[in-house]
Structures are given as C-alpha cells and as structure tokens.
C-alpha cells in the first residue's frame, strides 16, 4: 500500500519549490505554448514534511491522510432506517459536485485523491462496498467489477509529487448535464430512471445511505429498485437508433 514517493532527504526543499511554483504561476519549460491558455489551476493536496522521528508512526503514500485516521474513523454511514431529510438545494449541490468530477453525465468520474500510478489498483478495498473514512465518503462503485480501474478513471490533478504543473487547456466543450429527476406519471408515482443504467446498475452507489443528500433514496431498505422505477430503453441503447444487429 504505502510506498515512498520520490523524495526522501530533500523533501522539504522540494515541497517549497513546488509551492512557490504553484503560487507564482507556472513558467513553462519549452516553447510554442500559445496553444494552451490558462484556466483555473487544479488545487492539489499539500504534502506535509515528514521528520525522521515520525517515520515509524506517520503513514505516507496515496491515502496517507485518510489512513492516519483509518481505524478511529471507520464508519458505515447513516443507518438504513434513518429518515432522510433532504431539499432541492441539497440536490442542486450534489449535482454540482458530480459535474465537477465529470466531463458530462455518464463520463467516468475523475479520482479526487492521489493514487499509486503503477501498482495494480487496490481501489476495491474501499470502493467495492463503499466506506466512510476520516469524514470522506468512498462511494461504492456503481458498476460491476472491472480490475483495471485506472483504464477509465484518472486522477484529477498532476500525479507527480514534485512538479510544476502546466496550465489546463481551454475547451469550449459543454457536456450533457445530469437531469434533476425522473418523470412521474402522476404526483406520487415512482419516478422513472432519468439516466442510462449502463455502468450505473448499482443504484445504491449514489442513492444509498452513503449517497449525497439530495440524491438519496428515502427507502434504502428496498432492494429491487427497477420493480418500481422504470429504466429508459432509449438511454440504455435498447431501442434501434440504427439498424445494427
């Protein structure tokens, strides 16, 4: 799990350089940079310097902060029977957070924490069933198991510990937004599923007890979601948009 990243002795100095680079803006190394125009830089977690004396006791590595509090803070989230109180504002906030981590509704979310870039991904340790660790929710993955997680999910910030990150590129892409809710045949009817269920077949990943407020099911104890909530044939590619077999 934990692996010493790059820096050992010169850690503090190197961090200082990185921070200076981050604050002062980036001087690029080469030429022909006109193509890339700066938008807001992506903040990355600061690396805390580690003294020799701390070596035995302080953890380090991709999820060091969370690890440090691992056992004390391990929790499962709200009880399944706990009443859910949520508002439209909660939903708007939840959707906004979702949008930050995706290029469009349906895109694989980026990873908001550091990862080991080389090893076989150990994502399932937390994301197989979902956990609350150190106040952060590691959501249950919404799809069946695939082992090469980093095939689709990439980190949201420069993966290098010590680096000056060039500015992000400018894009005019506007992604498909998440819909706010399904349709109801009459007030009180169960809403239809307003999004594709492809790679989102485990409803509780977002709508379960660890789901964001605003998107949480009021009845998480019910397991057979599609009994009442109809998926869309069109969104699930079950209608013929072309005449392919």
């Amino acid at each position: 799990m934990s692996r010493v990243r790059g820096i050992e002795v010169g850690l503090a100095a190197a961090v200082a350089i990185a921070v200076i680079g981050f604050v002062t803006g980036v001087t690029t190394t080469g030429h022909e940079v006109s193509a890339y125009v700066s938008v807001r830089p992506v903040p990355r977690p600061e690396v805390a310097a580690r003294g020799y004396a701390d070596m035995r006791t302080r953890s380090y590595g991709p999820n060091a902060e969370a690890q440090a509090q691992w056992f004390g803070a391990l929790a499962t989230g709200p009880a399944i029977s706990e009443p859910v109180v949520q508002s439209e504002a909660d939903r708007a906030a939840a959707l906004a957070r979702r949008a930050e981590r995706r290029a469009y509704d349906g895109a694989p979310p980026t990873i908001p924490h550091d990862i080991d870039q080389l090893a076989v991904p150990s994502c399932l340790a937390c994301h197989a069933e979902g956990k609350v660790i150190a106040g952060m929710v590691a959501p249950r993955m919404s799809h069946a198991r695939h082992d090469s997680c980093v095939q689709c999910h990439v980190v949201a910030a420069d993966p290098r510990r010590v680096a000056q990150t060039p500015p992000a590129p400018e894009t005019v892409f506007v992604g498909l937004e998440s819909v706010r809710g399904g349709e109801r045949a009459w007030p009180g009817a169960p809403p239809t599923i307003p999004h594709s269920t492809r790679m989102r077949e485990r409803c509780d990943a977002c709508h379960g007890t660890l789901g964001a407020l605003g998107m949480r099911s009021t009845h998480p104890w019910r397991q057979s979601c599609v009994q009442c909530h109809a998926p869309s044939a069109a969104l699930d590619q079950r209608t013929t948009t072309s005449r392919s077999p």
Partner: peptide, 28 residues
Amino acid sequence: IPQLQRAMPESYLEMNREDAKALGIADG
C-alpha cells in the same frame, strides 16, 4: 481535453531510483 491533460499534464523522464541516486538527481 482537460480531464486527460490534468491527469498527465506534462512529459517527464522516467528513471530507475538507483541510477538517479548515482547521478545525484532527485525526483522532480
């Protein structure tokens, strides 16, 4: 593409740790 560029924003030279140590080169 922002999501891809942010995940890997710049080229780098990948080096074996022992070689780097021998040359006195630090990460970054």
